[in-house]
Design a protein around this nucleic acid. Structure first.
Length: 279
DNA sequence: AACAAGACCTGCATGC
DNA sequence: TGCATGCAGGTCTTGT
């Protein structure tokens, strides 16, 4: 569900709500999400002041005073929502973070594919979940050259390769399809077969799509919303994702003849593309 | 080593 | 109306 733009939008929303505030009460309503919630989770966070909210790929990092860091991932259906106290938790509201004289942050996740863990200021980058992540696509160092190094020699389809968080951190099913569309590359192409100009175009497309999606507050399909409850609106700008049979925004061919945007399955996930524009 | 497929879990849309 | 089926923004594990 949340890919980089959604997690970044949530990060920005949480920053305004949490930074500088103290967690006066943390309520844990079940023992596990996708993995067990670590022992002493609520107790260790209680009383801490939040100093920053960061993002690495699709992971959120909540820095607290005393060097404690909460790591979180929203999986497919996870939400972080801000509510005015007192909050009466509903179904799937697994964690509540009550701040001093302020709002409560609720971690809601019906499918429980999300996770939380605790780490420290010194050790977070070596956390098993983060250590193998690839480059941040919106960081200054992310260039066609870097992307080319990441995919060199791979015979796997570029669509599948880009979903590997060790190749580029933060891309998911929506933004991979959209990036390949914008760069005119067929999702089935072996990753290592891309020419240098194609890799350059792809790196640029990834950055552009992600930047535009963040500006739109992310994409709201089923579960995702911003911490305020507002929906993102980038879904209205999809060129291909979930648009099988619709007209390609840039081809002016007859849908009745061409079938429009195509849907395929790669690595057990749906892929959308324009068979005419992407080669 | 690289890759495909299954597993995890709930909710929703669709079709009979 | 009710039930079965398939599908969903992710990632980890198992098997070839």
């Amino acid at each position: 569900m949340p890919e980089l733009p959604e997690v970044e939008t949530i990060r920005r929303g949480l920053t305004g709500v949490l930074v500088g505030r103290r967690l006066v009460r943390v309520v844990q309503r079940r023992a596990d999400l996708r993995v067990p919630i670590p022992a002493g989770f609520a107790a260790r966070l209680t009383g801490r002041r939040v100093t920053a909210v960061r993002r690495r790929g699709k992971y959120l990092l909540v820095d607290c005073d005393g060097g404690l860091v909460m790591l979180g991932h929203l999986g497919m259906s996870g939400r972080l929502v801000v509510a005015a106290p007192p909050v009466a938790p509903g179904p799937h509201d697994h964690l509540l973070f009550e701040t001093d004289d302020g709002p409560t942050v609720v971690f809601h996740d019906p499918r429980r594919f999300g996770m939380v863990d605790l780490t420290t200021t010194d050790a977070w980058s070596g956390h098993p979940r983060l250590a193998a992540l690839g480059p941040e696509p919106l960081a200054d160092g992310f260039t066609g050259l870097v992307l080319g190094q990441q995919i060199a020699g791979r015979r796997q389809a570029i669509k599948v390769t880009l979903l590997d968080q060790g190749v580029v951190a933060g891309l998911g099913n929506i933004y991979v399809s959209e990036s390949l569309y914008r760069s005119g590359i067929l999702p089935t192409r072996p990753a290592g077969s891309l020419s240098t100009p194609e890799v350059e175009r792809l790196a640029t497309a990834i950055r552009t799509v992600l930047t535009e999606a963040i500006a739109a507050g992310g994409s709201s399909l089923r579960d995702y919303q911003q911490v305020s409850g507002e929906l993102g609106y980038f879904q209205h700008r999809f060129a291909v994702y979930d648009r099988a049979g619709s007209a390609c925004p840039t081809c002016d061919c007859d849908i009745a003849t061409t079938g429009g945007i195509a849907r395929a399955v790669q690595g057990n996930r749906a892929t959308f593309y324009c068979p005419r524009r992407q080669r």
